[in-house]
């Protein structure tokens, strides 16, 4: 297919409509929306190296406005987008992952994606040590210092609320109960932008006559 070409030849390839239709079929997006996402993908995947693939540095640049720097959460997001685990994000992987962030995507998918995001070591549980590691990471990212006592108090209250069976790890059922009681925890799993996706919003210089019909 055309996403195999380097750079992907989505614009000219004769299989273009087939590929777009396939992705629209596999996700919540319409063909017009997949087309709009491709414009966004092109910008992201060419911001450092123009090779039609999103490198970790390019995701870092988009989210942090600088190309380098370690960030635990960005690593996890990148890893979940990178379905084939080959260190780059292809267009189809990009569309699949963003589909979960659509306002109309099933809540179950968002809950599951967030669980996998926070299950750092991919053991099937969000362990207390992992949560502590993530809290330390966000405090460092924000330049905030907390005493270990306060940090432990936050951990205690979080696990008192989330860890129903008190085994110091949160399983998927406990996670579901927890986020359904605290829906604001899933706020960043929805991108309102995706609801109104068109070439005009993603790429303002595009005019409506470039759109293809659904």
């Amino acid at each position: 297919g055309c996403f195999e070409c380097r750079p992907p030849c989505l614009q000219n390839c004769e299989n273009r409509f087939e590929e777009i239709a396939r992705l629209a079929n596999e996700t919540i997006f319409t063909v017009n929306e997949v087309e709009a996402l491709y414009e966004l993908f092109k910008k992201l995947s060419s911001s450092i190296i123009d090779d039609g693939l999103i490198q970790k540095e390019e995701l870092h640049l988009a989210l942090f406005k600088t190309p380098s720097g370690e960030n635990l959460f960005l690593d996890r997001v990148f890893d979940l987008f990178d379905e084939k685990k080959n260190g780059v994000i292809k267009f189809d992987e990009f569309v699949h992952a963003l589909s979960v962030f659509h306002p109309n995507a099933p809540m179950e998918e968002k809950i599951d994606f967030a669980f996998r995001l926070y299950d750092l070591r991919q053991t099937g549980f969000i362990e207390r040590e992992e949560v502590k590691q993530m809290v330390i990471a966000i405090l460092m990212e924000s330049g905030i210092t907390l005493s270990d006592d306060l940090l432990e108090a936050i951990m205690d209250s979080t696990f008192a609320d989330a860890d129903a069976d008190k085994d110091d790890r949160i399983n998927i059922e406990e996670w579901k109960d927890f986020v359904l009681r605290n829906p604001n925890l899933l706020k960043n799993m929805t991108l309102p932008y995706l609801k109104d996706l068109s070439l005009a919003t993603v790429f303002p210089s595009f005019t409506s006559n470039t759109r293809i019909e659904d």
């Binding site: 966004l40 910008k43 992201l44 911001s47 988009a62 989210l63 942090f64 960030n71 635990l72 959460f73 960005l74 690593d75 996890r76 997001v77 963003l98 962030f101 995001l117 926070y118 949560v131 502590k132 993530m134 809290v135 990471a137 966000i138 405090l139 990212e141 924000s142 306060l150 108090a153 936050i154 951990m155 209250s157 979080t158 609320d161 989330a162 605290n182 604001n184 925890l185 706020k187 960043n188 991108l191 309102p192 932008y193 919003t201 993603v202």
Partner: peptide
């Protein structure tokens, strides 16, 4: 006690998890 603070609420504030910035390039 004001420590009803939730660890995941803090974590979800990371820029690394805020994908809306993807649309801001």
């Amino acid at each position: 006690q004001p420590t009803a603070m939730n660890a995941f609420e803090l974590i979800s504030m990371s820029k690394g998890l805020n994908l809306s910035n993807l649309f801001d390039i």
